[in-house]
Design a protein around this nucleic acid. Sequence first.
DNA 1: GTAAGCTTTTACCAATCGGTCAAATATCAA
DNA 2: TTGATATTTGACCGATTGGTAAAAGCTTAC
Lengths: 210, 210
Amino acid sequence: MIPRAAKTQRRTRIQEEKEEKILEAALDIFSAHGFRGATIDQIAEAAGMSKPNLLYYFRTKEAIHRALLDRMLFTWLEPLRAFDSEGNPETEIRSYIRRKLEMSRDYPRESRLFANEIIQGAQHIEDGLKGPLKELVDEKAEVIRAWIKAGKIAKCDPYHLIFSIWSTTQHYADFDVQVQAVLGDKSGEGRFEDAARFLEELFLRGLGIR
Amino acid sequence: MIPRAAKTQRRTRIQEEKEEKILEAALDIFSAHGFRGATIDQIAEAAGMSKPNLLYYFRTKEAIHRALLDRMLFTWLEPLRAFDSEGNPETEIRSYIRRKLEMSRDYPRESRLFANEIIQGAQHIEDGLKGPLKELVDEKAEVIRAWIKAGKIAKCDPYHLIFSIWSTTQHYADFDVQVQAVLGDKSGEGRFEDAARFLEELFLRGLGIR
DNA sequence: GTAAGCTTTTACCAATCGGTCAAATATCAA
DNA sequence: TTGATATTTGACCGATTGGTAAAAGCTTAC
C-alpha cells in the first residue's frame, strides 16, 4: 500500500484513470456548491466509487480542491498569456475577448469553481493570485500602456481594462442562470455569437479603435 | 409563545432588534461561505446569541437566507429602476454605472450574497429572477432600443449592454480579493474613482456617445 | 403585584460530516 | 502459479450539522 505519488512516479494506468475520474466529479460538485458546501460523499458518488476508495487517491477534501485549482489557474490564464505584445491592438483585444468568451462557453464549471473560490475569499489560492497572476497581469498591462503611448488606443487604465474584459466574459459562465432567466431559454449558440459581437464592438469602440 | 410573525404584526421592539441583528450577522456569514457552507452556529455566534434563541426568530436556516435574499433583490434592482426613459442617454447610463459601482463599494456583502446564490444555481431565488427581474430588464431594454432607433446611441443588443454593466461594476465587490491581489493593497478610495472613470469612458465611447 | 405572554437557555437528538482501519480482493511480474 | 503489491470495501469514529423539547427567566398590561 503505497498511496498517491509516493515511491517512483505516477505508476499504474488505473491510478491515472481514477484520479481523472475523481477530479472530473469534484469539478462538478465544487463548482456547484463551493468548497465548504461540497461533501466527499457527493464527489465519491459522482465518481462512482466508495468514499474510502476516493480517499485512497486524495488524502483529504482539500487535496482534491487544491489539485483542481492548480490545474485551473493555469488554463484560466492561458488566453492572457496568448496576448501578444507584437500584434496590433485590434486583433489582440478582439481575440482575447473571443478566447475568454469561448472559455466561458466550453468550461463553465471551471469558471464557476474559480468564481466561488474568489468570492469566498480565495483562501485556497491566494498565493496563486499574488504570484503568477499578478506578474502576468503586470506584464500585459505594460503592453497596453505602450499601445496608449503610441497613440494606438485611447488613454485608459490598463488594469481596469483587463478587469472589465474578465468580468464581462466570465459573466456568461458564472451568472448563466441569470442570463437564461432574462433572455429566456431560447438561442444557445446564437447567444454566444451575440455576446461576442456586442463585446467586440463595445471594447473596440470604447478604446477608440474604430 | 407566539413565534415569528404569527398573530397581529411585528410586535415588540425587541423582536425587531433581534431579527435585524440576525440578518446582519447572517449576511456576513452567507456572503462569505454561500448557503451550504454557512452554519447556524456561526450565524448565532456572530449575532451574539444562542442557536435556539436564533431559531426562535427564524424557524430554519433557509428562512434566514430567504429573508435576506428577498430584501436583497429589491435593493439590487433599485439602480435599474431609477434608469429613466425620459432622461438623455449620456446622463442615464453614466449615473447607472455610478450607482451600481457605489453599491459594489458600499454593499459588497450583499453583492457577494447575490453572486453566491446565482453561481450556485439560484435555487432559492429562481422565481425572483424570472419574475420581477426579467420584467424590469425587459422594460429598460425597450428604452435602450428606443434610443438606438432615435440614433442617440450606437446600435447594440440592449440585453448584453445591461449584462456588461452589471458584470463590470459588480466585479469590484465580488472579485475584490483578486482586484486587491493584482493592484496591491494601495489606494482604497482612489480605486473607486479610477474604476468609475474607466467604465464611464468605456461605455460612453463604446456606445458612440462621444 | 401578578398573571399572561414573550424570550432565553440547557440539554438533547438523529443525521451527516471528514476521515481511519483492517480485512478482503484484484492485479501483475516472476 | 504464486507471492508481492495495488486497490477496494464495510464497519466504524468523533465532531459537527440543522433542529427540538421543555422549562426557566423576563416584560408588560392590568
